[in-house]
Design a binder for these strands. Structure first.
Length: 821
RNA sequence: GCCCGAGUGGCGGAAUUGGUAGACGCAAGGGACUUAAAAUCCCUCGCGGGAAACCGCGUGCCGGUUCGAGUCCGGCCUCGGGCACCA
């Protein structure tokens, strides 16, 4: 054994041995208790960053801990490898997205292995490989069959100069990120997945996501955004047309003083004569800064009171939500209030804060709360909650409206006018229209003969070999769909693919039916990743899992039983970023301190769910700790190697005071580390406990007799407890003290409650709640005895002399509080 | 604007969930070893007073409940995060 701890010698050695033995290979065995531990797979951008190190270190601790607990652990890794950066690299450097991506994967995989992460690489998933994305296509076809996939017209960001579609993040301050042209909204036919069909189920099931952070569940609920209201028809005066509006406040119906249409609403075009004016409003559609409107010149009739009210087109009314038209009640909605004030429209109060009382006029702002109805015909006097119900029923009975439920959640637009994604498997035939590619013809493979110019739309449009095909239905000439899928499709089910080995020859049938593997492994027991995916990725995955269930592939509704959202890695007060110049390069860190140190620090500096403040000095502290562990073993090598049966507890009566202290601390530490991991994955406090144990062991100099056994037990326990956190040094020292490899495959240690117990406790004495003394007393004294000890204490006496004791409170085995007056 | 979350030493963070505030680590100061430095080891380390024993104060602010509050309740302040014209 080397005298000094040198991770450069230790870490590659064990990485090689683990790989040679394929130590982390998972075997499907239904007789074992399974544990599926998953970290969000990375986009292969080139190199890993500290956020990955943290994420994967957390996951690796959990996976290794569960393995030592005897679980059959599935801990896979893969690559979310479709997406724009590869295509951008192609445009910029002329390298094919595929080459760029696979080179990145190869490098990043070596980085992950250098971190000592315990993945079963036989299950590696690469989403840009046809073996993977063929299933995207298969799912798409199945969804098409079930009317879960459909085409509709929708708007995209379009750069007129580059003639290309832009993602939202490529639109910077309304301009194209590359050429600075003003981006316009262009209408295209695109593919959508009908996630809204599952809106209610996804919402209801939120209540069962007990293993998720409440914050994330709440974000999901808000995103789905269910609300109850009514749709009401307002007849357009002097025409047979009706305007259907949606409101959640039918109780304010008598207060409607105008109607607003969304600019894209069909009636906007029909009713407005001033086309130039409409154009102007449309240009401002969806802009949050200012509310503007245009009077159509027409009126409609409020069905409950027959009143004629003007119809406006307003830029703030969304076409995508409700009916694209609203009734405006300026007295009770701040937006309508602002609009009415601007255009001089009447404001009529119909809800009074307290029965019968209206606020002074003119109103300063809208009153949006509950209250009692006024100026509301037969409904006057009713309170708003009841009125909502009564007016809704009244409308339904008269055939003027109906109760409806609305969601903020929209169907998921998956079309991307890009090359580097899964081709959407349909063709367009002049005779047959839209035809799905038959299953037997999957996968539809991305062609290689393409050029990347960054202009003129998708490169697939210039690939005749791809574009021109035969219609599967009639055999005639047909054109392929050139849109590819949103990469969120890829990541919505990758956890399912991990349940089979990469090269499993049977995967073709297993993916189509309920396979034992899927039934065994799903759902993911612990999912770990950044909170930035709190809504989209997690919601899409929940949706996909339900579709898979309905296709008969799985039995589970929810993909992720427990979710851990780790915090960001911060340095100098802000998130690490190239532009801030505060990035720490994992390669440098591993080279300088080793991966055990890198892992240890990122686990020690903060609990996983909180942001982690990076500190170069803190990393050195972590390294120092591992060196201390190394030194303890080195100094005591002879004692540790001596033939002492492993796992035998020392004879307590034969131990020195220090030896007893070490033994006690050992058992206390096993207990503490186990519960810190088990309870909240609070690795920081678990590591702190290990540091305390090592400090205690360091104090046991030149152990003799039975103390040597206490020392060995302490060191072995330390290494076992350390193994999930810093696997390399744990393996090395485990071997150094004479154990066969691998510590990673050993059982997690247990503790003995008796040995962990303190002989004496420190009794805290308070007088009137203030700390006045501490005394050491034997463990296990009765409350009465504790009380007596406290009252008998000299120091206590000083504080109570001359006063009468009113009450004495004893907290079992901890504290006595004497109340005097 | 609405909805969450968090405020504890010079810093990162602990605190058995109502019972010793500041574990562990970092930084800082002092000492040992060394010709010297690095490394390592030992000691001190919330603030104020005191030579010391000890005393007072202290978990963003104000109030409350309680024998006892970092922890519970009410009201404010500040900082993060999410949603943002969803009618």
């Amino acid at each position: 054994m080397e005298e000094r701890y040198d991770p450069k010698k230790v870490e590659p050695k064990w990485q090689t041995l683990w790989a040679e033995k394929n130590l982390y290979k998972t075997r499907f065995d239904e007789t074992l208790k399974k544990f599926y531990c998953l970290e969000m797979f990375p986009y292969p951008s080139g190199k890993i960053h500290m956020g990955h190190v943290r994420n994967y270190a957390i996951g690796d601790v959990i996976a290794r801990y569960r393995r030592m607990q005897g679980c059959n652990v599935l801990h896979p890794m893969g690559w979310d490898s479709f997406g724009m950066p590869a295509e951008n690299a192609a445009i910029k450097h002329g390298v094919h997205p595929s080459k760029w991506t696979y080179e990145n994967i190869s490098y990043m995989k070596s980085q992950l292995n250098k971190l000592g992460l315990s993945y079963d690489w036989d299950r590696e998933v690469t989403t840009c490989s046809p073996d993977y994305y063929r299933w995207n296509q298969w799912f798409f076809i199945k969804m098409l069959e079930r009317d879960l996939a459909y085409r509709k017209s929708s708007y995209v960001n379009w750069c007129p100069s580059c003639e290309t579609v832009l993602a939202n993040e490529q639109v910077i301050d309304t301009k194209c990120w590359r050429c600075d042209s003003v981006v316009i909204q262009k209408e295209l036919f695109q593919w959508f997945l009908r996630i809204t069909r599952y809106a209610d189920e996804l919402l209801d099931a939120c209540g069962r996501l007990t293993g998720w952070p409440e914050k994330v569940v709440l974000m999901q609920k808000n995103w789905i955004g269910k609300s109850f209201g009514v749709e009401v028809d307002f007849r357009v005066d002097g025409s047979g047309e009706n305007i259907r509006i949606f409101t959640t406040r039918p109780d304010t119906l008598f207060g409607a003083t105008f109607i607003c249409l969304s600019p894209p609403h069909p009636l906007s075009q029909q009713l407005v004569q001033d086309k130039a004016g409409l154009e102007k409003i449309t240009a401002q559609y969806g802009k949050a800064d200012e509310k503007i409107g245009l009077f159509t010149g027409r009126y409609c009739v409020n069905p409950v009171n027959g009143e004629k009210i003007p119809i406006y087109v307003a830029n703030f009314v969304l076409m995508e939500y409700g009916t694209g038209a609203i009734m405006s009640v300026p007295a009770h909605d701040q937006r309508d209030f602002d609009f009415a004030a601007k255009y001089g429209l009447p404001i009529r109060q119909v809800i009074a804060p307290e029965s019968g009382q209206t606020q002074g006029s003119p109103l300063q702002e809208a009153y949006e709360e509950e209250g009692a109805l006024v100026n509301s015909g037969d409904f006057t006097g009713t309170d708003s909650a009841a009125a909502r119900e009564k007016i809704a029923l009244y409308l339904e009975n008269k055939g003027l409206g109906k109760k409806v439920v609305n969601y903020k959640l929209r169907d998921w637009g998956i079309s991307r006018q890009r090359y580097w994604g899964t081709p959407i498997p349909v063709v367009y035939c002049d005779g047959c229209g839209i035809v799905a590619v038959p299953e037997k013809d999957l996968p539809v493979i991305l062609p290689e003969d393409v050029k990347f110019t960054g202009k003129g739309g998708s490169p697939l449009l210039d690939s005749p070999s791809f574009l021109e095909t035969a219609c599967p239905a009639c055999g005639g000439k047909a054109r392929r769909e050139t849109d590819t899928m949103d990469t969120f499709v890829d990541s919505s089910w990758y956890f399912v693919r991990y349940c089979f080995e990469k090269n499993d020859p049977g995967v073709g049938s297993k993916m189509r039916t309920m396979s034992p593997e899927l039934r065994y492994w799903m759902p993911v027991d612990q999912y770990i990743g950044g909170v930035e995916h709190a809504v989209l990725h997690l919601l899409y995955s929940r949706f996909f899992t339900r579709v898979l269930r309905d296709l008969g592939l799985t039995e589970c509704d929810e993909p992720f039983l427990n979710l851990l959202t780790q915090g960001m890695v911060i340095k100098d007060g802000s998130k690490m970023s190239k532009s801030k110049g505060n990035v720490v390069d994992p390669d440098y860190l591993i080279d300088r301190y080793g991966s055990d140190t890198s892992r240890l620090f990122s686990l020690f500096a903060a609990p996983p769910e909180k942001d982690l403040d990076w500190s170069d000095k803190g990393v050195e502290g972590a390294y120092r700790f591992l060196s201390r562990v190394w030194n303890v073993v080195f100094r005591n090598l002879d004692v540790l190697r001596a033939a002492v049966p492993a796992g035998r507890n020392p004879d307590v009566s034969a131990l020195s005071e220090a030896g007893r202290g070490v033994l006690r601390k050992t058992h206390q530490t096993i207990k503490k580390v186990t519960s810190d991991i088990e309870k909240e994955y609070h690795f920081n406090t678990a590591i702190a406990a290990l540091m305390e144990l090592v400090n205690e062991v360091t104090g046991l100099e030149n152990p003799a007799g039975e103390d040597r056994i206490a020392l060995k037990a302490a060191v072995e326990s330390t290494l076992l407890l350390l193994a999930p956190f810093t696997p390399h040094i744990a393996e090395e020292l485990w071997e150094a003290i004479g154990n066969p490899p691998f510590i990673a495959a050993r059982a997690w240690p247990g503790w003995d409650e008796e040995l962990a117990r303190e002989d004496e406790i420190e009794l805290v004495v308070q007088v009137n709640g203030k700390l006045r003394g501490k005394l050491m007393v034997a463990f296990g004294l009765s409350d009465e005895e504790l009380k007596k000890r406290a009252l008998d204490d000299e120091k206590t006496a000083e504080w109570i002399s001359g006063k009468s004791i009113r009450k004495v409170i004893v907290v079992k085995g901890r504290l006595v509080n004497i109340v005097v007056g």
